[in-house]
Each structure stands twice: as C-alpha cells, then as structure tokens.
Amino acid sequence: MERLDRLGWAAGIAFESYGLRIGVRTNTPDILPQLGPYFPPDWTPATDLEVDWLYSLKVGGEGTRPGVRRFHLAYSDAALIGRSRDIEPVFHALEADIQAVIANLARERLFIHAGVVGWENQAILIPGESRSGKTSLVEAFLRAGATYYSDEYAVLDPDGRVHPFPRALGVRHRQDNGWTRQPVEGLGVSVGQTPLPVGLVLLTEYKPTAHWRPRSVTRGQAALALFAHTFVAHREPTLALGILQRAVAAATALKGARGEADEVVGRVLARLSTSQAQSAC
C-alpha cells in the first residue's frame, strides 16, 4: 500500500453508502465525473475525506514513448482489481468491488446474494449465486409488472424488511448471449422506494428441460437457503440468523428446478394473487 501511496494522486472523491465511507483517488481529475454511475444506488458525496475503504484508479492511455499505451489500473485497498487498456472494464471492476465491499461491511444492513422484486407490497426473493439465473427471473417479473428492487442483492434491515438496491440491470443480448448493464431509469420499469416484508422466497435453478413444479418448503429451510447466500454469515451469524428469522416470519417458500423464466413468473404471480385474495376473505 505504501508503494501505491507514493504514486502521484491528483484528485479524489469520497462518498457514503450504507454507513460506509468510500474514497476513490486518481491521477487524472477529469475521470471523476464519469464515476458516478458506477457507485452504489444510494451514494451521497461525503465531505470528510477520511474513508473506511480506499480505491485507487490509475488512468493509463498514451504514454510518453510513441506507440506505447499504458494500462488503466484499479486497486481496492492494495489489491489490483482491474487492469485493461480500455477504461470501461476497469470501471466495471471498480463497481463490482465497491458493491462487494459494501455487501461485506455495510452497517445496519444485511446483504444477501438474491434478486428481489416487489409485488403487491411484498418482496419476492430469489437467492442464488451470480449467473444462476436471478437476473432472467427478475427481468421476467418486471415484464409482468413487478417493481424492481435488485438483480443481485437483497438488502435487509434489522426488522427483516427488504430495501431497494436498484443497480443497473444486466440485460442479455439475444444475438451473442452476452450481457450489458443498463440503468433502470431507461427501461421503463417501476423502481422500489420503500422497504417491503418478504412474501415469497423462490429457491430455484435454471435447467433447460425443466418445468416448474415447485414444492413448498418450510420457513426454516427458506432461512437456511438465505443464510447460505448471506455475505456475513461466517462473521456475524447471530445477527444474520436473527434478521433472517424475522424476514421469513410471514413468508412462504417454493423450491424446484425451472425452465423458462416467463413460465415460472406467470404461475408464481397467479399463486400469489390467489393466496392474497384468500387471505383477504
């Protein structure tokens, strides 16, 4: 870190997010205005420049010698997290790492690897690792009119309610099966503003030949699955389990392999509407 500190840093920015103060320093002040879209959804500028976690962004580009292009480099604390001749991949590495830092160190919030949508004042949680199909399901729910909360993180408060983390949504290209991230503002979907109680936990994985025939599982099993995807499960198990107990207190949970996302979403929403109508009677 000391060697990193000795590099020439010309400017920086500090912001707060989920109780953490994060700083980014750079050798190129012009780059700072471009960073905002890569910060967490709730970020606010901080005036105090003493930070809990520091990033260093060294902009490369054309060097002094002709024909030599230097790498753009990003460091999380002292660790190199991004190295590319294009700046965009370095920005994405920075974004992903900031989110991971917050998920691990946020104060007063519990972060779970899960997609989240809101439906009729309840949150639907879809826990799963990256590339497990969470985003496809979230997208299908949004097409059906659900409210966007997150495609990656369920953010729970101490009462077990789910807060929005509406980061840019990963959108799959039909042509090459690749992904790009698009700000939700341009997608015409409603974005969650208020915390919601957990209504449903979907424990599912995509299998190309599967049809959605879920079975109900207990709240304990739902909490167990959520715990397995909780960032601080090892470090703060007592707090995490307490919050999860409150989170699933009124939730139902379904488990099963799934095929196409739209099939699941249609049947899940029909089931939720039916159960809500029954409970209203």
């Binding site: 397995a228 090892h234 470090r235």
Partner: peptide
C-alpha cells in the same frame, strides 16, 4: 447446507 467460503471474507478485490 455448507456456507460458501467465497462469501465469508471481507476481501473484495482479492485483497
């Protein structure tokens, strides 16, 4: 369930 170790560290960015 086994709690995946990759979620356990506060070490994003392989720090």
């Amino acid at each position: 369930v086994r709690i995946p170790s990759q979620l356990q560290t506060g070490s994003p960015g392989q720090s």
